[in-house]
Simulated scan of single mutants.
Amino acid sequence: MSKPPLIFIIVLAIIAVLASRQFIKQRRENAANAAAPVRLLSAEVKSKREFPAPNRHSRQREVIAGEEMRYEAWFHPLNGGGDMKLTLSEHAYQQLDKGAKGELKVQGTRFIAFTPEKP
């Protein structure tokens, strides 16, 4: 049997290192969010967008029926501070209206809820 080429082994090692780094980063972010206090902020929905979730099997950007989607919204705190980009569930995304003002509930970088002001 012949040995695998050295470049093949190097590529596999690089992939393993990068995958491990991403896994550790996600675990740290989840732990930080879980340890963070729940905050209530007066905020305005600045913008929102939906897009196909990254698919490791395809590079196409066309929306296919049944394809998994991601939902994001930008919130602007009314008491000052920088805008926040948060990932939402589909249900929460559908409930938001651009320009709506209300109470944003977050835990670290995790979206919990947005309650719009009543007109």
Rank of each mutant, 00 (worst) to 15 (best):
residue 116 P to V: 11
residue 96 L to H: 09
residue 107 Q to Y: 02
residue 104 L to W: 04
residue 44 E to I: 06
residue 75 F to R: 05
residue 2 S to M: 10
residue 99 G to C: 06
residue 40 L to M: 13
residue 37 P to H: 04
residue 13 A to G: 15
residue 92 A to Y: 00
residue 53 A to C: 05
residue 31 A to N: 07
residue 84 M to I: 13
residue 19 A to Y: 03
residue 104 L to T: 04
residue 19 A to Q: 12
residue 41 L to N: 00
residue 116 P to T: 09
residue 84 M to P: 08
residue 103 E to M: 15
residue 39 R to D: 07
residue 32 A to Q: 10
residue 87 T to L: 10
residue 45 V to I: 14
residue 27 R to N: 07
residue 34 A to T: 01
residue 72 E to D: 14
residue 80 G to A: 06
residue 26 Q to T: 06
residue 81 G to P: 09
residue 77 P to K: 03
residue 109 T to R: 11
residue 53 A to Q: 13
residue 70 R to D: 11
residue 26 Q to W: 04
residue 61 R to N: 12
residue 87 T to W: 00
residue 26 Q to V: 01
residue 35 A to P: 01
residue 100 A to C: 09
residue 35 A to Y: 02
residue 57 H to A: 13
residue 21 R to I: 13
residue 64 I to Y: 01
residue 5 P to T: 08
residue 64 I to T: 11
residue 105 K to C: 07
residue 46 K to S: 14
residue 96 L to R: 10
residue 1 M to E: 11
residue 37 P to K: 03
residue 60 Q to R: 12
residue 18 L to C: 12
residue 62 E to Q: 14
residue 111 F to S: 08
residue 44 E to D: 07
residue 103 E to N: 12
residue 89 S to E: 08
residue 34 A to Y: 01
residue 110 R to A: 08
residue 98 K to R: 12
residue 115 T to Y: 04
residue 69 M to Y: 09
residue 69 M to E: 06
residue 70 R to Y: 07
residue 1 M to Y: 11
residue 107 Q to R: 13
residue 50 E to I: 00
residue 84 M to Y: 00
residue 58 S to L: 06
residue 114 F to A: 10
residue 103 E to I: 14
residue 23 F to M: 10
residue 38 V to N: 01
residue 108 G to M: 01
residue 33 N to P: 04
residue 105 K to R: 10
residue 67 E to G: 14
residue 84 M to W: 05
residue 85 K to Q: 14
residue 10 I to T: 12
residue 12 L to P: 00
residue 51 F to I: 02
residue 36 A to S: 15
residue 59 R to H: 10
residue 80 G to P: 07
residue 67 E to I: 04
residue 86 L to D: 02
residue 26 Q to L: 05
residue 79 N to V: 04
residue 78 L to D: 04
residue 92 A to K: 07
residue 102 G to A: 01
residue 10 I to K: 10
residue 8 F to R: 13
residue 61 R to F: 09
residue 55 N to K: 06
residue 4 P to I: 11
residue 89 S to P: 01
residue 29 E to Q: 13
residue 29 E to L: 14
residue 70 R to W: 06
residue 12 L to R: 11
residue 97 D to G: 15
residue 101 K to Y: 00
residue 52 P to L: 08
residue 1 M to L: 10
residue 40 L to H: 14
residue 110 R to W: 00
residue 36 A to D: 00
residue 91 H to W: 13
residue 97 D to R: 12
residue 98 K to I: 15
residue 22 Q to W: 07
residue 88 L to V: 08
residue 66 G to I: 08
residue 9 I to T: 15
residue 48 K to V: 09
residue 32 A to C: 04
residue 96 L to I: 12
residue 78 L to H: 01
residue 90 E to S: 15
residue 15 I to Y: 02
residue 60 Q to H: 13
residue 85 K to P: 05
residue 56 R to C: 02
residue 99 G to Y: 05
residue 115 T to S: 15
residue 79 N to P: 04
residue 51 F to C: 00
residue 52 P to H: 07
residue 12 L to D: 04
residue 113 A to V: 00
residue 30 N to A: 08
residue 94 Q to N: 13
residue 95 Q to W: 09
residue 75 F to H: 03
residue 14 I to Y: 09
residue 42 S to L: 10
residue 104 L to S: 07
residue 91 H to V: 13
residue 5 P to H: 14
residue 80 G to E: 08
residue 60 Q to Y: 02
residue 85 K to A: 15
residue 89 S to C: 07
residue 100 A to R: 05
residue 23 F to Y: 12
residue 5 P to L: 08
residue 72 E to L: 12
residue 77 P to F: 02
residue 71 Y to N: 10
residue 107 Q to H: 05
residue 10 I to F: 12
residue 24 I to V: 15
